[in-house]
């Protein structure tokens, strides 16, 4: 087990390096002189040169690359060009909001999607199955900014059950929970719809397998056949998809944060784009990718625990 974890951790290193390299290249192939982009066309040549020196852009490429990679790996992403504060600090201040939103949406997606998917599979082509398929189609075709606005109108303004402004006090768990509900529903419903479909098909697939027939031939009660033999196998593809989807959630949280006016990575990104905070954008890109690498790593480890066939490979 320890060996397995170590191997997966080691395997994540090249991924991280690749991510850093791609970000490094993207930032450098964007047309235009970053110094001029930041300072504007009217900047003097001296000011531009000074900024280039400050950003290290006058160094040879390989020196820039080395500095960038070694800094990033030690958690040093430089300072925001606008506020002058370290990027990690700026991000760290709002990251909990984004994580709250992502986790809450994921929990919702799984807690709703998995049981409904199982139910639909067990009552294949029955009323519940058809209803679940229709609802999940609806869920999948509703973008966050539409469902989000309806949720805000209904539960925020009409019934006033949940706040419209999402700036939670991080030290108050109740407040965090209260403020994450609506955005998590908006973001998580699509995931629930998706997970419903995946669970349904994984469950149908698994229940059609030979080992299910073997279990029944042993006299295993149907309930146990479904929940132990069927679900244990069906959960493997579901875990993979949940892992992939959490990456999507992190990305989609940008939109949700804007609709619900929540602090978080999304808002910082929009701010950095507006203010041409090129250092901030570069740092954010890397941090986003790191988060996704971490999510994938966790998924991989979980999968390894659940599927005995993986460990040997």
């Amino acid at each position: 087990m320890i060996w397995f974890v170590a191997k997966r951790l080691l395997a994540a290193v090249p991924t991280l390096l690749a991510v850093l390299t791609v970000v490094f290249i993207i930032v450098r192939i964007v047309p235009g002189d970053p110094a001029l982009v930041i300072l504007g066309d009217q900047a003097t040549a001296e000011a531009a040169a000074a900024l280039r020196t400050r950003l290290g852009l006058d160094q040879p490429m390989w020196v820039q690359y080395w500095t960038f990679v070694s800094n990033a790996l030690t958690g040093n992403f430089g300072a925001s060009l606008v506020t002058g504060r370290p990027i990690l600090e700026e991000v760290g201040a709002v990251l909990p909001h984004t994580i709250d939103l992502t986790l809450a949406s994921m929990v919702l997606g799984v807690v709703v999607g998995v049981p409904v998917g199982i139910w639909a599979a067990l009552h294949r082509n029955g009323a519940i199955d058809v209803a679940a398929r229709l609802l999940s189609l609806l869920g999948l075709s509703f973008p966050v900014f539409v469902s989000g606005i309806y949720l805000l109108l209904l539960f925020g303004l009409y019934w006033r059950l949940f706040p419209v402004i999402g700036n939670a006090d991080l030290s108050d768990f109740g407040d965090r929970l209260h403020k994450v509900v609506l955005p998590a529903v908006a973001l998580g419903l699509t995931m629930a719809a998706y997970i419903t479909r995946v669970t349904r098909s994984a469950m149908l697939h698994s229940l059609g397998e030979d080992y299910i027939r073997t279990a029944r031939a042993k006299g295993v009660p149907w309930r146990r056949v479904v929940w132990v033999h069927g679900l244990r196998n069906a959960s493997l593809p579901v875990v993979t998809v949940v892992g992939l989807y959490v990456g999507i959630l992190i990305g989609n949280s940008v939109l949700t944060e804007i609709v619900f006016n929540r602090p978080g990575l999304g808002k910082i990104i929009v701010g950095a784009l507006n203010q041409r905070d090129y250092a901030m954008l570069q740092g954010l890109m890397v941090i986003y990718c790191f988060l996704i690498v971490v999510v994938n790593l966790v998924t991989d480890l979980l999968y390894g625990v659940m599927d005995p066939r993986v460990k040997q490979a």
């Binding site: 080992y211 027939r213 031939a217 149907w222 196998n233 659940m306």
Partner: peptide, 23 residues
């Protein structure tokens, strides 16, 4: 369910797929 596996048992052809892979 009470009889299957107790009074009457069955073996299947496909030994590769007839066992639950995660148990």
């Amino acid at each position: 369910e009470k009889l299957r596996g107790d009074r009457i048992g069955m073996i299947f052809q496909e030994p590769m797929t007839s066992l639950n892979p995660v148990m």
